[in-house]
């Protein structure tokens, strides 16, 4: 009877349940624990979070309008009075342009990756789930696009759409979805043979429900891990395309466009190009290192290799 009194003690019981609940095994919690022990990945995460915040609030805090020209104050060096990072050849405040440039680059990176992730996941899921001719058609298309260099397709697509950020987003999204489709297809190929899928089928679930409720949660992890690499790829691609005049058009400042505009002043005013360049490098390094960390957490087999 003594045991029962313990069970009847409602407060004790509830606190025990709460403790168990708080320490329950969870994939997210494990991942967070692993990630927090990986110093490099944590550094990457800090950089990425920092630039995300800058992209969100930065332009609102900018001291000047990004397009405002003061020709008498042109080409001021960094740390000049009133212009922390100096001014460009038209006397526009470099810091204000940089803040907006970071927002544009981040938005292009996230936007294209969101498009690519969604399309890639759907296509990969269908190809891996239905196999047969569906797979042959879809995968043939995926392999074709996957085999082509991003910049080549982007240049041709932008040739059709016309230079500008819209063209860049469509072009980069159009190419990068193939990468997600390949990964998801491979995962689904293996997963659909698992018992839980057979069990769902035995319960009379339809294809759509199996794909969305049972397969999707299992593939979304690796797709998200790839996401951080693809954001980096998209940021570099946008910068490169803007640099050769196919991306952001003046006076809009994307990081690549700023490097391009500054490239004519390298000898005496190199900061016009070097500062946005350093920002891109930091951002891309942060994303890549974070991606490596996430991969180690979600796919420990690859740890230390590659």
């Amino acid at each position: 009877m003594a045991d029962l009194t313990v069970l009847d003690d409602k407060a004790t019981w509830e606190s025990r349940v709460e403790r168990l609940w708080a320490t329950r095994p969870s994939r997210f919690r494990d991942a967070w624990y692993e990630l927090s022990r990986n110093k490099l990945a944590l550094g990457g995460a800090v950089i990425v979070v920092f630039f995300t915040l800058v992209a969100i609030v930065g332009p609102a805090l900018a001291p000047y309008d990004y397009a405002k020209q003061v020709l008498s104050d042109n080409l001021l060096p960094p740390l000049s009075k009133g212009h922390l990072l100096g001014t460009d050849e038209l006397g526009r405040d470099l810091l204000s342009r940089l803040l907006l440039g970071i927002r544009i680059s981040m938005a292009v990176g996230l936007g294209t990756t969101a498009i690519a992730l969604s399309i890639g996941t759907i296509v990969g899921m269908l190809a891996g789930f239905y196999r047969g001719w569906v797979d042959r058609v879809l995968n043939g298309f995926v392999e074709l696009i996957w085999g082509f260099p991003l910049i080549l397709i982007a240049v041709l697509l932008i040739g059709a759409i016309g230079p500008g950020l819209t063209g860049v987003v469509i072009a980069v999204g159009f190419v990068n979805w193939a990468g997600f489709a390949r990964i998801v297809r491979g995962d689904v190929f293996a997963l659909r043979e698992k018992e839980f899928v057979a069990a769902a089928r035995a319960l009379g679930k339809g294809d759509l429900e199996i794909m969305i409720r049972h397969l999707l949660p299992n593939v979304v992890g690796s797709a998200l891990v790839m996401g951080s690499y693809y954001i980096a790829i998209a940021i570099i691609a946008e910068a490169a395309l803007s640099f050769i005049g196919m991306g952001a058009q003046p006076p809009l400042p994307s990081l690549g466009q700023m490097i391009n505009e500054g490239s004519g002043y390298m000898l005496l005013n190199h900061w016009l190009s070097t500062i946005p360049g350093i920002v891109i490098v930091l951002l891309v390094l942060g994303l890549n290192v974070l991606g490596d960390g996430l991969r180690d957490v979600f796919d420990p087999r690859l740890k230390g290799l590659g």
Partner: peptide, 16 residues
């Protein structure tokens, strides 16, 4: 670093 540095920026730095 080699994978993170965009090649067009590396080009500018080397030219500089």
């Amino acid at each position: 670093l080699g994978m993170g540095i965009p090649n067009f920026w590396l080009a500018l730095i080397l030219v500089y």
